[in-house]
Amino acid sequence: MIGVPLCVYNPFMKILVCIKQVSETVGGITQVMNRFDEYALEEAIRIKERFMAAGLDAVVHVITLGPEQAAAVVKRAFGMGADKGWHLVTDPNQNGSSAVTAGLMAGAVKGGAYDLVVTGIMSQDRMEGQTGPILAELMGLACATGVVATSLVPGSSCLTVERELEKGARESLSITLPALLTVQAGINTPRYPSLSNVLKASKKTIQTLVVPGGTVDTQTTVRLEAPLKSRAGRVLGGTLDDKALALFTLLRERGIL
C-alpha cells in the first residue's frame, strides 16, 4: 500500500547526535553546549536506554564541528552517557552556513550506518535551524523537525514522533529508520553529567579530523548590523532607585498605576 512505512526487526540502534559549542555570556564569556542540543542528546540516550532495558543493544555517538576547544562539549556528552565522539576541527575563524556544516559532517560520517541522527532545533549563535534537514538530505534520510515527543518499540525500525506546529498544535508521524530528527526544547529534562560517566570518559575515544577551510558556501554573510528598532527605546538613567521612580511617574501619568 502506498505511504505505509514498513517496520522490520532492528535489534541494534546506532544513533548520532550533533552537538555544537556556543558562547554564552554568564558572568564573562564561557563556552557551553548549545542549549537545544542538550535536549537532542538526552533524547538519544533515553532511546538507547529503552533498547538496553529490552535486552537489545544501542550506541550513541556525538559529533561536533568547531575549533580545538570544542572538544569540551564532546567530553560533556561522555559525562551524560555518549559512547564515542567525532570532532571535526575547524579554523577558529571559519563561519560557514548550515550548508557547509552539514556538508562536512555528512562527508565525515559517510559509511557510519547510523539508524538515527538527532540534532537540536537551532544553534543559539547562527539560529538557522537548517543543519539537521540539510544533513538528512545529504545522507538520504527521512526527516522530521521540531520533534517534541518520540515513542518506539525497542527492536522495531519504525518510530512514532510528534512535531510541534504553531499555536500549540502537534502532528504525529510514523517514520521508518534510518531517519533524522531535529528536537525542540522541552521534549525532556536533560541530565547532568554523572560521576560514574565522567570517570569512564577518559577511556572513550574522540575521533579527530582536521577539516579544510575555504569550503565553497551557498551564501555569504556580508556584514553584521545592529537590529532596527521597532519602538522608541527610551533608556532610563541614574541609579536603580532613579529608574524605579521614573517608571513609576510614567505609569502614573498613563493611569496604569
Binding site: 502506498i2 505511504g3 505505509v4 512505512p5 514498513l6 527521512a142 522530521a144 512514532t160 506546529l165 498544535a169 502537534r170 502532528e171 504525529s172 508521524l173 510514523s174 517514520i175 521508518t176 531517519a179
Partner: peptide, 8 residues
Amino acid sequence: GKIQPLGI
C-alpha cells in the same frame, strides 16, 4: 512512504 502522517 518513509513518513506516514498520523494526524494533528
